[in-house]
């Protein structure tokens, strides 16, 4: 069993500005652990987490793959979160490289179809669209959960760009809740973009029914 990364260096003051690891974080860690063999077999060289928050998930991925085998990039729109990610990397001896930006921003040009493992625990809570836009513009903790219509506004932007960023054998792990309509996400990614998917884990946590979905490119017919 791979231990949960140490976040004891982060304080309550940090968690006023940055999303604290919770059930949705833990199901993602469990899914990565369940997929550990598959992940290692891929020998990924570039991993990226969008919205890395506390840095707990990226540090965990580093523990699964090893600290020197892969470059661990991460982005977050919240500068406080990027700093927490950096510190959590140090605390867990995984060199994490956080960048303050929205989604994949400045990496898009150079990492065209080059990311081997992409991870996103998005703001998935259904809210008014305006609440989601304000939250993203505020670059603060609200941006970590307010998801707009069906909780899908931010996720949608990543799904649309997935083909541009994921490498040929790359894997994309996405956290979702029932309100996001998981069957429809999976069907659309298959039909419109040619990605197959599996539900790695699902569980109920309080009022939320959480899913971790893994996407990969369909093998091209030869």
């Amino acid at each position: 069993m791979i231990p949960t990364p140490d976040t004891s260096h982060l304080t309550n003051a940090d968690f006023e500005h940055v999303y604290e690891p919770a059930e949705d974080t833990f199901i993602l860690l469990d899914a990565l652990e369940a997929d550990a063999e598959r992940l290692r077999a891929l020998t990924p060289r570039i991993a990226m987490e969008i919205g890395s928050g506390s840095g707990c998930v990226s540090a965990f991925l580093g523990a699964v793959l090893g600290s020197t085998t892969c470059l661990y990039l991460s982005t977050d729109i919240n500068p406080h979160a990027a700093l927490c990610t950096l510190k959590t990397g140090g605390q867990n001896k995984v060199p994490l490289e956080p960048v303050v930006t929205s989604l994949i921003g400045p990496f898009a040009k150079r990492l065209h179809r080059a990311v081997d493992v992409l991870i996103f625990n998005p703001p998935y809570v259904p809210t008014e669209d305006e609440e989601m836009t304000d939250a993203q513009a505020g670059r603060a903790i609200e941006g970590s959960w307010a998801g707009g219509k069906q909780g899908m506004l931010v996720t949608e932007r990543v799904l649309c760009g997935l083909d541009e960023i994921l490498s040929e054998k790359g894997l994309f792990y996405l956290v979702a809740v029932k309100d996001n309509d998981v069957p429809s996400i999976r069907r659309r990614m298959d039909e419109e973009y040619g990605f197959e998917s599996d539900i790695v884990l699902q569980r109920r946590a309080g009022r939320e029914h959480l899913f971790v979905i893994r996407f990969s490119r369909k093998a091209s017919p030869s």
Partner: peptide
């Protein structure tokens, strides 16, 4: 950490910087 490995992957993404520029 801005190390040169990361710098090598970052490009300007402002609106006047197209695919090859920036």
């Amino acid at each position: 950490m801005v190390r040169l490995i990361t710098h090598n992957l970052l490009a300007c993404h402002a609106k006047n910087c197209t695919q090859t520029k920036g």
